[in-house]
C-alpha cells in the first residue's frame, strides 16, 4: 500500500516537475532547428526561462469574458490536467508502478479519449467564434484519430495477449521488441499520438494562424497554463506508452540486475519520442482540416484494420 502511494507521488511529481524543463527544451530545440538560439536571457543559456514564465503566468490577471459559460469555463482547464494525470497514474516506469491494472493500456486510452473534452468545453464556454471553431475541430479530430489508434493498439494487444503493461514488457523480454513485429502499428500509433496531443502537424484546435489562439484564445494566467500542463503531461504519458509497447519499456542490458537502470532506459526511450514531437513541430506545416480527416479515415483506418489480420497471423506463429 505504502509502496503504491510512494510510486504515485513519484509519478505525479515527475509529471509536474518535468513539464517546465520540457517547455524549455522544446523552445531550444525548435530554435536550433531554425538556426535561432531560443531563450537566452534568463539565466545561462536561458535555463531559468520556465521559472520566469511560471511567475508571469501566476501573477497574470485571470480574465473570464462576459457572456462566457462560467462553470464550464473554469472546469475545462482543470479537466485537462486531471485527465492527463489519471492516465499517468497507471503507466509503470520501470519498477515504479503506482496503480497496477489489468487493463492499464485501455485505461490510458480512455483517459486520453476524454481529455479532448477540455479543448471542446473551453471552445464552447468562451463565447468566442474562434474558440468555438477550435472546439469543433477538436471534436472532429478525436473522431478521426480515435479509431485508427484503437485498431493499431488492438493489433498490438492481440500479439502480446494482454492489456497489462507489465505483461507486455515481459512478452517483449522473451520475444524481442514489439516494433519488429508490428512496424505498421508503430507508425500509425505514432502519428495518432501526435494528433491526440494536438501537436503540429495536427495542431488544428490551436491553429494560431487561422484561429487566433484556438480554444485558449480567451484564457489567461494559470488557467491558460493548465492547458499546457495537460498537453505536456499527455505527451510524456504517450511517449512512455510508445516505448513500452514497441521498444521494450524498461528492458535493456543489465536492467534485470539493477532496476534503477531500467527506469533510466525507459525514461530515455520516452525522451526520444518527446524529442520527436519537437522535431515534427519544427519540420512540418499544419495539415488542412479536410486533409487531416482524409488521411485518418481513408488511409489509416483501413490500414489499421488490415494490420489486425497481420497481427493475428503473427500471434498464431509466435504465440
Amino acid at each position: 500500500m505504502i509502496e503504491h502511494f510512494l510510486s504515485l507521488l513519484f509519478i505525479v511529481g515527475l509529471m509536474l516537475v518535468a513539464v517546465p524543463p520540457i517547455t524549455y527544451l522544446e523552445r531550444k530545440v525548435l530554435g536550433h532547428m531554425q538556426q535561432r538560439s531560443g531563450p537566452m536571457v534568463v539565466g545561462p543559456h536561458g535555463v531559468l526561462q520556465p521559472i520566469a514564465d511560471a511567475i508571469k503566468l501566476i501573477f497574470k490577471e485571470d480574465v473570464i469574458p462576459r457572456g462566457a459559460d462560467k462553470l464550464l469555463f473554469v472546469f475545462a482547464p482543470s479537466f485537462s490536467v486531471f485527465a492527463a494525470l489519471l492516465a499517468a497514474s497507471v503507466v509503470p516506469i520501470g519498477f515504479i508502478n503506482a496503480v497496477p491494472m489489468k487493463s492499464g493500456l485501455l485505461f490510458v486510452m480512455a483517459m486520453s479519449a476524454i481529455s479532448i473534452y477540455a479543448f471542446f468545453l473551453a471552445g464552447y464556454s468562451s463565447n468566442d467564434k474562434y474558440s468555438f471553431l477550435a472546439g469543433m475541430r477538436a471534436a472532429a479530430q478525436v473522431l478521426g484519430y480515435e479509431l485508427p489508434m484503437g485498431f493499431a493498439l488492438m493489433a498490438v494487444v492481440i500479439l502480446f495477449g494482454s492489456f497489462d503493461f507489465n505483461e507486455i514488457v515481459k512478452w517483449q523480454q522473451t520475444h524481442g521488441w514489439g516494433i519488429f513485429y508490428q512496424p505498421i502499428a508503430f507508425v500509425i500509433f505514432l502519428i495518432m499520438m501526435v494528433a491526440e496531443v494536438c501537436r503540429p502537424p495536427f495542431d488544428l484546435p490551436e491553429g494560431e494562424s487561422e484561429l487566433v489562439g484556438g480554444f485558449h484564445t480567451e484564457y489567461s494566467g494559470m488557467r491558460f497554463a493548465a492547458f499546457f500542463f495537460g498537453e505536456y503531461i499527455n505527451i510524456i504519458v504517450l511517449s512512455l506508452v510508445v516505448s513500452l509497447l514497441f521498444f521494450g519499456g524498461w528492458s535493456g542490458p543489465l536492467a534485470d540486475k539493477h532496476p534503477v537502470l531500467g527506469v533510466l532506459y525507459h525514461l530515455l526511450k520516452a525522451g526520444f519520442f518527446i524529442f520527436l514531437t519537437f522535431w515534427l513541430r519544427a519540420t512540418f506545416p499544419r495539415y488542412r482540416f479536410d486533409q487531416m480527416l482524409n488521411i485518418m479515415w481513408k488511409i489509416f483506418l483501413p490500414l489499421s484494420i488490415l494490420n489486425i489480420f497481420i497481427a493475428a497471423v503473427e500471434a498464431l506463429f509466435v504465440g
Binding site: V29, G31, H32, M33, Q34, Q35, R36, S37, W279, A282, T283
Partner: peptide, 9 residues
C-alpha cells in the same frame, strides 16, 4: 531540420 539543429545559429 536535424542537420540544421547542429549548425551554428
Amino acid at each position: 531540420t536535424l542537420k540544421t539543429m547542429f549548425k551554428p545559429t
